[in-house]
Amino acid sequence: MSTGLNVFSLFQRLKVITNVVRASPLLPLYTRTSSNLLGRGQRSMMGGGNDNRPSASSSLTHEETEALKIQTLEVSRVIVKETECRQLVDEWFRAGHPVGLDGEGVNLGPTGYVTLVQISTIEGQVFIFDVHTNPALFTKGKLGQLLQSKDIVKVIHDCRNDSAALYKEHRITLSNIFDTQAAHFVIQHQETGKPVDKIYNVSFNTLCQQYNAPVNPMKDQVKKVYRQDQGFWARRPLTKDMICYAAADVIALVPKIHTAMAREIKSEKMSLFTSVCEKHVNMFINSDYTIKKQKERRESDVANLKLKIASAHSRNVKLSFREIKLLRHVKLSEEDKKNLIKGSPKLKRILERHQLH
Rank of each mutant, 00 (worst) to 15 (best):
L27R: 15
V20Y: 05
V131Q: 10
L146W: 08
D90T: 07
I17D: 10
G109S: 09
G112L: 03
E323A: 06
V302D: 11
D220P: 00
I70E: 12
I341K: 01
L351V: 08
L174F: 04
I122M: 03
L340E: 06
Q210A: 14
S34I: 13
F127W: 07
L10W: 00
I350N: 02
N134P: 07
R77P: 03
S76G: 05
L356Q: 09
E91D: 12
P110I: 02
M242P: 07
I257P: 07
K338D: 14
S59C: 15
L146T: 11
H354N: 12
P98N: 03
S149H: 02
T121H: 05
R353C: 01
Q145N: 09
R77L: 12
G144P: 07
I156R: 01
K279E: 10
D102E: 13
V99T: 06
N201C: 05
N339Q: 09
A260I: 12
A312P: 08
Q188R: 11
A213I: 13
E299V: 05
A248D: 10
H313P: 00
L319S: 02
Y30P: 00
K223H: 04
T139I: 09
L327V: 08
F138K: 09
Y289R: 05
L207P: 02
V131Y: 02
F284W: 04
G49Q: 08
I128M: 04
D288V: 08
N134H: 10
K219T: 15
K223P: 04
T206P: 01
M261Y: 01
L143W: 05
V153Y: 00
L38G: 15
P195A: 07
M1P: 14
Y167V: 11
I79S: 11
I172D: 11
V202D: 02
G144F: 08
V75A: 08
N50V: 09
S24T: 07
L60P: 05
T133E: 15
S120D: 13
A260S: 11
A183Q: 03
S58L: 07
N286W: 02
L327W: 02
V222R: 06
N304W: 02
E335V: 13
A246Y: 08
F204V: 01
Q148A: 15
K223V: 11
V78C: 06
P195F: 00
T139A: 07
P255V: 07
R43H: 05
I291C: 03
I285C: 04
V153I: 15
T121R: 04
V250A: 12
K325P: 00
S44F: 08
L207D: 02
K150V: 09
S344Y: 00
L340Y: 01
K338P: 00
